[in-house]
Amino acid sequence: MPKYLLTLPTLLTLLSLATPPALAAEAQKRIVPTVTLTVKQFSELEEDWLQAVRQHDTDALNRLVADNFELRTSAAPGRPTARAEWLKQAQAGAPFDSRIEQMAVHEYGQLMVVSFLWKLDVPKTSPLPQQVFVIDTWKQGDNGWQVLTRYAAPVQAGAKAVPGAEPGPPAVDKKI
C-alpha cells in the first residue's frame, strides 16, 4: 500500500486551496441580469425610436412620439423642448451609434416609466456627453405605445451623490 493515499475529499480540498482567490472572487462578482418582459418590450421600443432618428424615418417617429411630446433636460429644467423643435434638432445632427444599458421599467396602468443609461458613441471632442441618464414616460394608446416626455441628464464622472441616494455601487443580493 502506498505511503501517501489521497482520498477524493482530501484531493478536492487540496485543489480548492490551490485555486487563486482572485478567480473565486471573480466568479462571485459575475451577475447575469434577468430581463423582464416589460424591459424587453421597452428596450425594443427605445431601439426603434433610436433607429427612426438615425434613419430620419418620419412615419416611425410619428408612430412612437406623441404629438404633445416634450424633452426636459437638467441644463434647463424649466424650459422644455417641444416636439417640433426636438424633431428639428434630432434630425439635424449627424447620426451616431449608441446603446442602452441598465434599464428599469415601472408600470402604472397605461403609463410606463422607463429609465436607463444611454451610452453615446461620439468623439470625446463632441459637445454631446458620452453618457446620459434618461427617464421616458410612455402611454398606451389606441395605436400602441407613444413616448410623452423624456427627462435627460448627462452623467458626469466624479459627480456627487444625489440627496437620499445610497452611496457607491448598488448592493447585490447574493441570495438565489
Rank of each mutant, 00 (worst) to 15 (best):
M1Q: 08
P2Q: 13
K3Y: 07
Y4A: 12
Y4K: 14
L5G: 03
L5I: 15
L6P: 01
L11V: 09
L11S: 13
L12K: 13
T13L: 14
T13R: 12
T13K: 11
L14N: 07
A18F: 08
T19F: 08
T19K: 02
T19S: 09
P20T: 06
A22K: 11
A24R: 14
A24E: 13
R30I: 14
I31A: 11
I31L: 13
I31H: 12
I31S: 11
V32M: 09
V32G: 05
T36I: 03
L37P: 02
K40N: 01
Q41N: 08
F42S: 00
W49T: 05
Q51M: 12
A52D: 00
A52Q: 04
V53A: 04
Q55F: 10
D59H: 10
L61A: 00
N62A: 04
N62G: 09
R63L: 09
R63F: 05
V65C: 03
A66P: 05
A66M: 03
D67M: 08
D67F: 10
N68V: 06
F69W: 07
E70N: 13
L71T: 04
L71E: 07
R72T: 15
R72Y: 03
T73M: 09
S74V: 09
S74L: 11
A75V: 02
A76T: 15
P77K: 11
P80H: 06
A82L: 14
A82K: 13
E85V: 15
E85R: 13
Q91V: 01
G93S: 15
A94L: 14
P95N: 06
P95C: 07
P95I: 05
F96Q: 05
I100R: 03
M103D: 01
M103R: 03
A104H: 13
H106K: 15
E107R: 12
Y108A: 14
L111C: 08
M112A: 15
V113P: 01
V114A: 01
V114S: 00
S115W: 04
F116K: 00
L117V: 10
L117M: 11
L117R: 11
W118C: 02
D121A: 12
K124R: 13
K124C: 01
L128M: 14
Q131I: 02
Q131H: 11
Q131C: 06
V132E: 08
F133T: 07
F133A: 13
I135Q: 07
I135V: 15
T137S: 07
W138E: 04
W138M: 06
K139A: 13
G141H: 09
D142L: 12
G144V: 04
W145T: 05
W145S: 04
V147D: 00
V147N: 03
L148V: 10
T149P: 00
Y151L: 15
Y151Q: 10
P154F: 00
Q156V: 15
Q156W: 04
A159S: 14
K160S: 14
K160Y: 08
A161N: 15
P163Q: 10
G164S: 02
E166Y: 04
E166L: 10
P169I: 03
P169H: 05
P170F: 04
P170V: 07
A171C: 00
D173H: 07
D173W: 05
K175D: 11
